[in-house]
Nucleic acid binder design. Structure first.
Length: 854
DNA sequence: CGGATCGAC
DNA sequence: CTATGTCGATCCG
């Protein structure tokens, strides 16, 4: 591509996060026109490191495009023809499965943060203002937007565009409260962020038809709507609040000023049916539009803030619609195919959620800008893009999207990152890293997650981003554990760069590779098995394993792993696997095996909890055996004992679970785009969980596993000899002798202080501070054979990791490191979620292992 | 699996 | 005076 230096006044300032899109400045209004805005931005930007990096990224995109075009030029007409056939077939199928029956609403508060701040500080009301800092703005009000001031723009540039701009800091806690509002309108609403949500009002509409007029009537009084006779359930929830005289939104909000109230006779709020403005009484009809109007009206009454909404048969369309008449408007796509098609026809693809800057540019290179183009070029696209991508395109071009609102499945990763002014001392960097790990550990604990892959993200002062990951053999979750992995990665990077220091402007830590359901149950039963978790902290944390620091190979290898591997292979395990180090080693050391041991270690980490996950019953006098038996009963539909009531309750719940699981499966397999709508909400502030305590499929699988467990575990082993004689012997690995110094004193201090050595097997605190001695003790405990049986079981039971649900993978492990596995799309069908497939999986797994050790 | 990239807010 | 964020998911090798 021609990438001449004439970045001259970047006519289209692509490459920047803030786009000019919406600033069509009306004549007569204060503000700037596009050209001026662009010019100012360029002046402020040009020559900065940031800009250089943007240019670089832009060029990379251009290269991708070039590559794609070249690929395109090599396509034969027969290829295209075949593609056309295939694509048409799929089009037909999709068309057949089109579902127009739902009423999906996307609600989006207008300039939310800014609106809140303006409401709470009237002085800001008519001035250009933005929420954020000199470094970055979260959003701006509509006055400021006329100057080109937009979200994701640094404040100092915004100031150049609009010298009078008031920048106020964000109060995320305040904004958070708004969520309660949404919940009043749909108990199952799906929040997307603090100010956005999806609702499925289909059921509501049905009920609404039978609703008498007075229950759709709202009066304005003192700035608040009052419903003459709200429906019982609504009443219960909102009545108390609606009757109070100050905004319910923020307990801490300043006094409410009546004059801040919006004018209710404003354009959009006119009700089609009966409107009696003179009395400030509004009667809303029974249609979807009226229902949504009512909802927005009530939101405004309650918060003094306006919202926009889109109504459509699916989530994708609803989202696009909500933007259409923003601010303070709504738009509906009728539930007819033709209406959808008309809407889609000229829709610029960039408006579609999931199509971002890059995709837009790539498609534009193919002459595609609207959904119609997308449709016409679908055969070509199927040849140039990945399956998931072009499937997505096809959906879009047909106006299809998710028709059910569901929280998506378990999250796949969790991370935290921070930007700061340059930090180049290694010491500070380690400190920072630790802090991040701490934050992350806190977040993880809120969701009770543990993961096996830790990723460190670094951005240097040139804005170059680098990520480095390391996968360890067992799941980690505590600050110590995460840090012990992260610091090694960091050290490696520092070492590589030395003698130059890393000049960082951002650091982040991410954890992924969460235990899947299978693992978790696994975990649980063992937890119960061992009956104690005290040792965990010690065992799992890097504390015990400082050797990992710099000897690349054995990083997280523990004696558990080594022992186990040795046992299975009948020979001592010399080398170990470590992703950071060498891929070859991974090949030579398939992880199928060792991981299980670590899984066990993990399990130790969990609290034994004898609360039945099905009926939630808990008995203090349960031992594991009784507990397992109970679970068995709860799960099996043929109650063999005791409490009939409980059992039937269990069954009910279980039914729900399977249903949920089915749905979820469908969602994943069918519509990738659901993923994009992932519920992320909480970004900055912690807490604010809105767990509505449903049993998700996650839980369900846990249940299944537990049952399997209890089937196959020997209960007696479980409880016996948990207090066995520790003897010292065995070797804990020469590795330990090589305890390298942590990269910084800071690190060293944290790593070695205050470890308490409690044996996870016998649960006795060891009177030693010598790691090697302690390790030997544990080894002995293990060798007592206590775990031997269990391990045997686990080997068979554990269906997971390296083989996942891919039968061929077992082979791949042997011959072929690459493990291509076409991992691309999950498209898994139901396989891994279906309990029935468990057996098959299991067998595959052990076969693979057997094969490997041949 | 690891790394880079994308998209959303 | 400086000064361009944070998160999760997915793609690609």
């Amino acid at each position: 591509m021609d990438q001449p230096e004439e970045k001259e006044i970047a006519p289209s300032n692509e490459g920047f996060q803030y786009r000019m899109g919406l600033n069509d400045n009306k004549a007569g209004m204060e503000g700037l026109d596009k050209e001026k805005i662009n010019k100012i931005i360029m002046e402020a930007t040009k020559g900065s490191k940031f800009y250089d990096n943007e240019l670089k990224k832009d060029q990379q995109v251009n290269q991708r495009i070039e590559k794609m075009l070249q690929q395109k030029s090599q396509l034969t007409s027969s290829q295209l023809k075949m593609a056309q056939v295939q694509v048409e077939k799929m089009t037909l199928e999709l068309e057949r499965s089109r579902d127009l029956s739902r009423f999906i609403v996307h609600v989006d508060m207008d300039a939310f943060y800014a609106a809140v701040e303006m409401r709470d500080n009237p002085e800001l009301k008519d001035k250009p203002m933005a929420v954020g800092s000199m470094s970055m703005l979260s959003t701006s009000n509509y006055v400021a937007r006329r100057f080109g001031v937009r979200a994701a723009m640094p404040g100092f540039i915004a100031k150049k565009l609009c010298p009078n701009l008031q920048i106020v800091p964000a109060n995320f806690d305040k904004y958070r409260a708004i969520r309660e509002i949404f919940s009043e309108y749909d108990p199952n609403f799906l929040p997307l962020s603090l100010d956005e949500a999806y609702l499925d009002i289909t059921d509501h509409l049905e009920e609404r038809l039978t609703r008498p007029e007075d229950r759709r009537t709202f009066t304005v009084k003192n700035g608040h709507a009052e419903n003459g006779d709200p429906p019982a359930e609504v009443k219960a929830k909102c009545e108390p609040e609606e009757t109070c005289t100050s905004p319910v939104l923020f307990e801490d909000s300043p006094t409410f000023l009546p004059d801040q109230c919006h004018d209710f006779s404003r354009q959009d709020l006119k009700c089609e049916n009966q409107e009696r403005p003179q009395e400030n009484v509004f009667v809303f009809g029974t249609s979807a539009e009226e229902a949504v109007r009512e909802m927005r009206f009530r939101i405004e009454q309650k918060t003094t803030l306006t919202a926009s909404a889109g109504i459509a048969p699916n989530m994708m369309l609803a989202k696009v619609c909500s933007d259409k008449n923003k601010p303070n408007g709504q738009y509906i796509i009728l539930h007819e195919r033709q209406a959808v098609m008309d809407f889609i026809k000229d829709l610029p693809i960039r408006k579609v959620p999931g199509i971002g800057k890059v995709t837009e540019k790539m498609l534009r290179a193919l002459g595609i800008t609207t959904c119609t183009d997308l449709y016409q070029q679908r055969a070509l696209l199927s040849l140039l893009f990945s399956d998931t991508s072009w499937h997505n395109f096809l959906h879009i071009s047909l106006g299809l999207g998710s028709t059910r609102i569901e929280r998506d499945g378990e999250r796949k990763s969790m991370s935290t990152e921070r930007t700061f002014s340059e930090i180049s001392s290694a010491e500070e960097q380690y400190e920072l890293c630790r802090e991040l790990c701490k934050d992350l550990a806190e977040d993880l604990s809120k969701e009770g997650l543990k993961g096996r892959t830790v990723t460190l993200k670094l951005k240097n002062v040139k804005f170059e981003v680098k990520t480095r990951a390391s996968t360890v053999s067992y799941a980690v979750s505590t600050e110590e554990e995460i840090f012990s992995v992260a610091k090694d990665i960091l050290k490696a990077e520092i070492d590589v760069a030395s003698p130059e220091p890393l000049r960082l402007r951002l650091m982040g830590v991410r954890i992924s590779g969460f235990l899947c359901e299978d693992d978790k149950k696994h975990q649980k039963s063992i937890t119960s098995f061992l009956g104690s978790n005290k040792a965990v902290k010690t065992m799992c944390s890097g504390t015990v394993d400082p050797k990992a620091t710099q000897n690349p190979a054995p990083q997280r290898e523990s004696f558990f792993n080594q022992k186990r591997a040795a046992r299975l292979q009948g020979l001592e395990q010399g080398s170990t696997s470590n992703a950071v180090t060498s891929k070859e080693q991974n090949v030579a050391h398939p992880s199928s095996e060792p991981q299980q041991d670590f899984t066990e270690v993990d399990q130790i980490c969990q609290d034994p909890d004898f609360t039945c996950p099905i009926c939630m019953m808990k008995k203090s006098d349960w031992n594991l055996e009784a507990f397992n038996r109970h679970i068995d009963q709860c799960l099996s539909k043929s109650p063999t004992s005791g409490n009939g009531e409980i059992l039937s309750k269990c069954e009910d719940v279980f039914e729900n679970c399977s249903d949920k699981a089915k749905k979820s499966n469908k969602g994943v397999g069918k519509d990738v785009r659901i993923k994009n709508l992932k519920n992320k909400m909480v970004t900055l502030a912690p807490s604010d969980d809105m767990d509505d305590f449903v049993i998700d499929n996650n839980t369900m699988h846990t249940l299944h596993d537990q049952r399997v467990k209890s089937d196959s575990c020997r209960d007696k082993i479980i409880c016996e000899n948990s207090m066995e004689n520790p003897q010292v012997e065995g070797d804990v690995g020469g590795n330990n002798t090589d305890v390298s110094k942590p990269a910084s004193s800071l690190c060293s201090a944290t790593c070695s202080e205050g470890a308490v050595f409690i044996c996870p097997v016998c649960n006795i605190q060891q009177d030693t501070s010598d790691l090697a001695v302690f390790n030997r003790h544990v080894d002995v405990c293990l060798n007592n054979g206590i775990l031997e049986e269990l391990k045997g079981q686990n080997t068979n039971l554990d269906p997971k990791h390296p083989v996942r649900n891919d039968p061929q993978n077992g082979m791949a492990v042997r011959g072929n490191a690459g493990n291509k596995s076409n991992a691309r799309s999950k498209r898994p069908g139901a396989a891994q979620q279906n309990p029935a497939s468990k057996k098959a999986k299991t067998q595959r797994s052990s076969l693979t292992i057997d094969a490997f050790f041949k």
